[in-house]
Design a protein around this nucleic acid. Sequence first.
DNA 1: ATTAAAATTTAGACAAATCTAAAAATTTGT
DNA 2: ACAAATTTTTAGATTTGTCTAAATTTTAAT
Lengths: 223, 223
Amino acid sequence: MGKSFLVTRSEENYLKAIFHLGGSEASSIATNAIAEEMQTKPSSVTDMAKKLAEKGLVDYVRYQGVSLTEKGIKTALAIIRKHRLWEVFLVKKLDFTWDEVHEVAEQLEHIKSEKLIDKIDELLDFPKYDPHGDPIPTKNGEFQERDKQLLSELPLHSKGICVGVKDTSTAFLRFLDKNEIALGDSIKVLEREDFDDSMHIQIAERQLHISNQIATNLYVKKE
Amino acid sequence: MGKSFLVTRSEENYLKAIFHLGGSEASSIATNAIAEEMQTKPSSVTDMAKKLAEKGLVDYVRYQGVSLTEKGIKTALAIIRKHRLWEVFLVKKLDFTWDEVHEVAEQLEHIKSEKLIDKIDELLDFPKYDPHGDPIPTKNGEFQERDKQLLSELPLHSKGICVGVKDTSTAFLRFLDKNEIALGDSIKVLEREDFDDSMHIQIAERQLHISNQIATNLYVKKE
DNA sequence: ATTAAAATTTAGACAAATCTAAAAATTTGT
DNA sequence: ACAAATTTTTAGATTTGTCTAAATTTTAAT
């Protein structure tokens, strides 16, 4: 079996970025898009694309961009799995807030030990979702996106359960904390303002007025 | 305050090695000794010595070797603290055996997050010793070596409590596991064989015959 | 269908961390 | 004290991952 041989930390980060940009589907991802995502220069992306292609992790055609191979997808999912499991660990076991976890998980995701991450998985009782509501791939790389929609798309008077966030910036997560909006909360759309698409919602026992910018960054699952 | 600015992973490993070789005392540590400890070449050590000296982490005199500065000691202790706390975590929370922890802890010790390690410390209830019996430095870099001696030096008929190991090789740790010798066990010297310095010991309810090589790698604390 | 704009790649350079081989300094043995 | 052995350093090369600037290819507009 192809014991994943040597994948460097930098290569792992590229694979993750490509995956997040949709590189696991048929479509190719543009050099510029990857450079943007990774906060680096397009020329660096080109160099790395060649390296990853040589290792059989991506398909790369000059001037066309890259897409992940089967092997690349597996590797990317393993990293995402680790990242999300560590996030759960930090929140559940060490009382980190959900805006604090990302930076540390970015480091922890590169720790190489199959036993370690499987034990963490077990310690957490095999969670299916991370603190932002994103699904955690299994050991075999299976994972299903939750059936969810943006709060902004929820019809008037219908109810949903908050299951995730689209924007994971510190600012947004802090806003949610401050307004006591958490995953699992039940949300009902009471009124919608046509003028600016802001809305009145019922959340737990409270009522809240939220802007469209909030509503387009909160995922809910219809009840 | 000198927020430890940038210390690379490689630099951290050198500091740790120098500390282990006694570089925190007045004595200087030879280039060759460090190369041996780090499994690298003396010329690489020279290069790094200059770099560390420039950052004020070691004192370095050409052809004389290096010794840690105050700042270098602090940095080394912070890494050792992290390494040992992670070892405790792996054993206590994830059921790793004590011969499995080192390799993973070597990676985890480089994770940069003060909050993370302090929370791990708290989760473990502020342990004083790691799974091999070595003391864990406090957040302020204080740490005291335990009052201990080698089992081989324990007088005939006297008793001690097993508090640590000198050799931390997988082979030795596995041997101890197989013979059910664990930290905390009470050991009494029943008989000593002058010919080869092997000894009969009473450990818990059992009696055991152990070679001098074992006895010179087990630390006990006199009762 | 050309040309202008945008995206991408190449070429050449740099910093970090390492190595080899040769030179220099120190230590050791007598 | 001086030659031989050992240790240490220097000089120059290599690898990884990055960058800038220039060249090339693709895309978009008229």
